[in-house]
Design a protein around this nucleic acid. Structure first.
Lengths: 178, 178
DNA sequence: GCTCATTATTCTAGTGCTAGAATATGCCGG
DNA sequence: CCGGCATATTCTAGCACTAGAATAATGAGC
């Protein structure tokens, strides 16, 4: 039976695999690790997805004694197997995604020279801001395992590539009469 | 009334703005421009989205005389306004997205050294294949407007950044005992 | 005129996610 | 012990999209 997890499912399954956790906690983990921005897993989706994972037998729920208002989830052996397999699949192949820059550039022709220049300049500062945000998050959490450190390198690498593309394009546009 | 288009809506609205088109034609345009990969707009969504745009008054439908089985859509003045505004918005701000690499790296700890190495090596060839695919598409369509050419530069820039990150990480992993 | 592939559209029954409201518990200070 | 804030979960209604089947017109070749 070839299981296929969605992004949100894989994310939460992995976080539960680190240690048993309850819904609210997952919410906070996502927040404090600065993952809110790219995961786009909404608050109310967490319980929903957790429910699906439970039905699929990948996690099991239990109430710790003495706590009525808290249901903790832990990963099952099947869940761990699926997690491995799906992590390998996620890492193993590149999947092109919808970038707002790509989308905008396709419709380039509808913009006036000024509007286009302004928009790209705005993006430049937006990208710069994101690079700074990453730097801040990175400095905040000193003792990070190597692979998390590495993750930041990846994101900033992508952002820097985008930044230099924007700069090149802006130079080109400013030099050209339009 | 602050309109807010989804990615698919903005994409199709923009394509219709280039010239009046019908559903099937849009399907082909997406295919031949090599946009299928990153837009992830499914075949059946086109008519669906077109219907929504029509209801919203951003495009208008008409049947050309003599053609019974074909409904062409053209952009309305309102549609053009919204398109401009939304294109500026899309270009103007960076939006972090779900990358399968990010997702996989978060769950790094569940993999054995070998599994992790293999997965990253697989990704390396997947990324290389995508770079080649882009080169192929690019060469196929000789007379491209500057801004389309530029789009390819962007995509390959992102891919090259990813490739060099993977190489660095692989070197690091191979050197380390784990 | 008939056949068949291609072109072209519509419909149904889903999936996956989400906003936001409603609800309930835990705990601390007064 | 009570009010109020933080913690924690559930539910409803709905959005955006999608797979895939059904249907129909068009055109090219026999």
């Amino acid at each position: 039976m070839p299981v296929n997890l969605t992004d949100a499912e894989l994310l939460l399954l992995g976080l539960v695999s680190e240690m048993p956790r309850h819904g609210y906690e997952l919410e906070q983990v996502i927040e404090t690790r600065g993952m809110r921005e790219w995961t786009q897993v909404g608050f109310s989706s967490i319980y929903f997805v957790l429910g699906k994972l439970e039905k699929a037998g990948l996690v099991a729920a239990g109430r710790p004694r003495g706590a009525k208002a808290r249901k903790t989830f832990r990963i099952t052996p099947t869940g761990r197997e699926v997690l491995c397999e799906q992590t390998i699949a996620a890492l193993g192949s590149y999947r092109p995604t919808f970038s707002s820059l790509l989308l905008g550039m396709v419709h380039w022709h509808v913009l006036s020279r000024d509007a286009a220049l302004n928009a790209l300049e705005a993006r430049l500062s937006s990208v710069a801001a994101e690079i700074e945000r990453l730097e801040r998050v990175r400095r905040q959490r000193q003792p990070m395992p190597d692979h998390v450190e590495s993750l930041f390198d990846f994101s900033t690498g992508q952002l820097n590539a985008e930044r230099s593309w924007i700069n090149t394009t802006l130079d080109y546009m400013r030099a050209k009469p339009w």
